[in-house]
């Protein structure tokens, strides 16, 4: 395993603390024994091939995954606690908004659940650059636009922790760039972001990289660390090197 990235954070700064998490789905052990700590204000990239357990891990953090063992604490409380529901934003991999409602109707509904009003709705639609489409039905938007509606819902109420499952999938490079700028500015403001991706070149934009393989931690490092450890020229290659090393171990 690669060496650990950040320094050990103080307890008050721990946003997510996962200890010996075990998740079984059906007959398959998705996460056998997973531990991870995320401090405040980091952009953490969760990388790994599909089926490596990224989504399951994210579901456990937001508290919708049935777990078989271990602990998941978010902002000092067990994941999924009622007090956390307005402090954690979650964007699922599938576009989980109402396709038969307009962009602003979707946002207005989720805002109402959080006790937010119109100004927040308009502001959030602006943030994902969908102001021109506010009155359009989500079902009529392009794939990239739809996923931005889904992202906007997660951003509502400026949650302290954002859990985003492949937020940039299907977006063109320009939009991807602007979303990563948005993520960066949120992190600067103290938001913690856990962002999954299978696009390795996005890895370079993260503060920290957590690489998963078959439910186990393959590496917990920084973008620079990843390259220097593996001697690879880019993130894609680095992952292949690590994957080969891990494969050779088993």
């Amino acid at each position: 395993m690669a060496d650990l990235a950040g320094t050990t954070p103080g307890a008050a700064d721990v946003v997510v603390g996962i200890g010996h998490l075990k998740v079984v789905r059906g007959k398959r052990v998705v996460l056998p024994d997973f531990s991870l700590t995320l401090p405040r204000g980091q952009v953490v990239g969760l990388l790994g091939p599909s089926g490596s357990g990224k989504t399951t891990l994210m579901r456990a953090v937001v508290g919708v995954q049935t777990v078989a063992g271990g602990t998941v604490e978010v902002l000092g409380r067990p994941a999924g606690s009622p007090e956390l529901r307005s402090r954690v934003g979650y964007m699922t991999q599938a576009v989980s908004v109402y396709s038969d409602l307009t962009v602003s109707e979707n946002l207005t509904y989720f805002a109402a659940l959080l006790g937010l009003g119109r100004p927040e709705v308009a502001q959030t639609i602006d943030r994902v650059e969908l102001a021109d489409h506010a009155g359009d039905l989500v079902g009529r938007l392009s794939g990239g636009e739809r996923s931005r509606v889904s992202l906007a819902v997660a951003l509502l109420g400026s949650p302290e922790l954002l859990v985003l499952d492949e937020p940039t999938v299907g977006l063109d490079p320009v939009l991807r760039q602007s979303l990563w700028d948005l993520f960066r500015s949120l992190a600067t403001g103290g938001t913690t972001l856990l962002v999954s991706s299978h696009v390795m070149d996005e890895a370079t934009r993260c503060d920290r990289l957590v690489l998963l393989r078959q439910g186990r931690l393959l590496a917990d490092t920084t973008p620079a660390g990843l390259l220097s450890q593996t001697g690879a020229r880019n993130a894609d290659q680095a992952f292949l090197v690590l994957e080969r090393q891990a494969g050779g171990d088993t």
């Binding site: 919708v64 979650y90 699922t92």
Partner: peptide, 13 residues
């Protein structure tokens, strides 16, 4: 099936 229920369950509803 669309995932909106799962998302709702992470909100204060």
């Amino acid at each position: 099936t669309s995932g909106t229920l799962e998302r709702l369950m992470t909100t204060p509803i």
